[in-house]
Design a protein around this nucleic acid. Structure first.
Lengths: 227, 227
DNA sequence: ACGACGCTTCGTCGGGGGGTGAAGCGTCGC
DNA sequence: GCGACGCTTCACCCCCCGACGAAGCGTCGT
């Protein structure tokens, strides 16, 4: 079996693909979480994760009775994103976890989903951020606008990365990540433009759900972010 | 089935992967050629090609009783290259077609394989070529050196693309493509540094084999190309 | 020390997908 | 027009892979 076929076959199983997609944002997830994401039982998930690990696509880190899995490297994320960019039969498969999660959710503490991608585009379009080596920097006018929004730029700069792209698995386009993205998200939550649902379900994906308030929708639309 | 799993599963079959790999350089191949490359019968190849076409990975062009297949687009090549860059079990699978083909072969009329990749690196390292939008340009000193080699730069510039990168599937690194690469290869063949084997086998891959003469190995080594 | 919990391994089963051979269809060459 | 040729479709078979249940192992909480 050639290397190409082996790698692709590893990703090509629906359960493994769901796991990898869940790992794409960079978070490390436990075997149980990945089993629920993939919609399979623990034994099947264990077998899949073993295959992914032995295939060099996933790295494992044992911590107590949990085993945390993450993508093995940058090339793996690159390959997954390249595959996500393919037409795949021409029809975008419906995302099984509902529209709400696709609309807005947390990804490493920052906003992802339609709103995350929209926010990224709007910030770039309005000149709040400009490309910089390894990511983005804030422009002077952007700093002023962000401060008006209540963003703590000092906290944002304290993060290891100020602002960089993070592939959004539901939108297939990058949203903003890094300290800036986290602080912007925090500011939007403080302003109650976004809220976390009351009863966070036990399902890991649901725990990341964000809801956009009517006031938030109005304000974000005013900033040029498509509702 | 999510889009990721569907695309990857399409590539993940050994026969389909072999076909896609054969199409990676950009050449259009007939169903029969692809069947031989994949080592399967015509019916199986037909089914695989139908799946690849319906999946949007491959495009078809009927010409007489032949049906020519090529990769559907740039994104497909990108995805394949990203997958080829993965460790795939940590071990590079042995290339079943022998070392000779990996060492030097034709790819769209230009040199590929170890020598192709090495030539590309040497030309860049010695400042013969410099990055340009969409590919490479020849520097003044490079033009002189190339003319000394007997390269017809006029013919090279007449090609639709002068010089650009082409992913080398055996080396996993780019070699030089475009009009310049084709003319350089022609010059090396004229100088008998490279020769085509006497009896070109009927197997399509063997038809592209190039052999490096002792004189050629010496000369190329003098140019900084690893033997 | 005991049970609860997370995860893995083993054994077993079932379904789907890839393979071939035979047949059918359209195109090329004499 | 006839066979040769390239390719596709059809029917069929078989193997492999992924699912689950039960059991085992190690870790955490009390």
């Amino acid at each position: 079996m050639t290397s190409l076929a082996a790698s692709a076959a590893l990703i090509g199983d629906p359960a493994r693909a769901a796991m990898l997609q869940a790992l794409l944002p960079g978070e490390a997830l436990t075997a149980g979480e990945l089993a629920r994401v993939a919609g399979i039982g623990a034994p099947a998930a264990s077998a899949h994760l073993k295959a992914l690990t032995e295939g060099g696509l996933v790295g494992v880190h044992a911590q107590g009775r949990h085993r945390y899995h993450r993508l093995a490297g940058e090339e793996v994320a690159t390959a997954l994103e390249a595959l996500l960019a393919l037409p795949a039969g021409g029809i975008r498969a419906p995302w099984p976890h509902g529209d709400a999660l696709r609309r807005a959710r947390l990804c490493w503490g920052h906003l992802a989903g339609q709103l995350g991608v929209g926010l990224h585009g709007a910030m770039a379009a309005q000149g709040w951020i400009a490309p910089a080596p390894g990511g983005w920097q804030a422009t002077p006018s952007g700093e002023a606008a962000l401060r008006d929004l209540g963003v703590d730029l000092g906290a944002a700069r304290a993060a290891p990365r100020f602002a960089c792209d993070c592939m959004d698995w539901s939108e297939r386009r990058p949203h903003l990540a890094g300290g800036l993205a986290r602080e912007v998200t925090a500011a939007l939550l403080r302003r109650k433009w976004l809220v976390r649902p009351e009863a966070a379900s036990e399902r890991p994906l649901r725990r990341r759900l964000l809801l956009c308030t009517p006031e938030g929708a109005r304000q974000l639309q005013g900033l040029g972010i498509a509702a």
